[in-house]
Amino acid sequence: MSRPHQYIALVTSLPHLGKLFTRKEVPISEYRLKQRLSMLEPEHARLLRKIVEITAWSGVAKYREDRDVIRRATQVVADLKDFPDLQHLVGTRMETRTLIAALRRRRDGQESAGDIKTWGYGRWCSRIRENWNDPAFGLGHFMPWIGDAHRLMQAGDQIAMERLALTQVFRQLDHYNALHEFDFEAVAIYVLRWVIVERWSRYNADDAAERLKQLMAAALGHDTGTDAPAGERDLFANPSVAFDGAPS
């Protein structure tokens, strides 16, 4: 099959993922998904692996430093030069992560953004630095979810916080999904959505509560792995979320 036909067959062979939080399990297993993705051209398969690596939590977790994640994201965005929408998507995702990292740093008592270029990515770094004490970093007028995220984080409602973050990421994916139907971008967006749905389906409220309990114990100093000062932690790889799979 030629390339357009190949991608039409691939996209139509992928089951509908539905709305976020409505499914208890993914409609297609990882094995089957990988099998279907074998229809991708080798170069596209390589790019997709890179995108997933930098956007999914499991890929980011292997980096010890935030600056390594930022460097990698910059490389991935440069590598996607033929796919501007995917560049924007990865960039927007990293910016969302930066905003959540900033909220966490502030919650943990950091008094200023510090050298934000070492842990932040994208357009909002200077805005975050200049508006550190504003609940929404001065971005609330066009990203009202930041204010909501701030309130949830202050209230310690990790589950609602993760839902909010994932909803934002899903919205971003939906926006770009509307622009592509039968091409590589459509496949990449499907896979990113699948990663989120699959991660969410792994957890339930009991698991989340148990994990939160462990994290609180760790925060009180019972776990030597998480007692570093807030400013020295890898916030892109911050384990202080209820769902370690949440690729927010």
Binding site: M1, A9, V11, T12, S13, L14
Partner: peptide
């Protein structure tokens, strides 16, 4: 036809 073949897989 490509779409139909893909849909049949699912």
């Amino acid at each position: 036809g490509s779409a139909a073949i893909g849909a049949m897989l699912d």
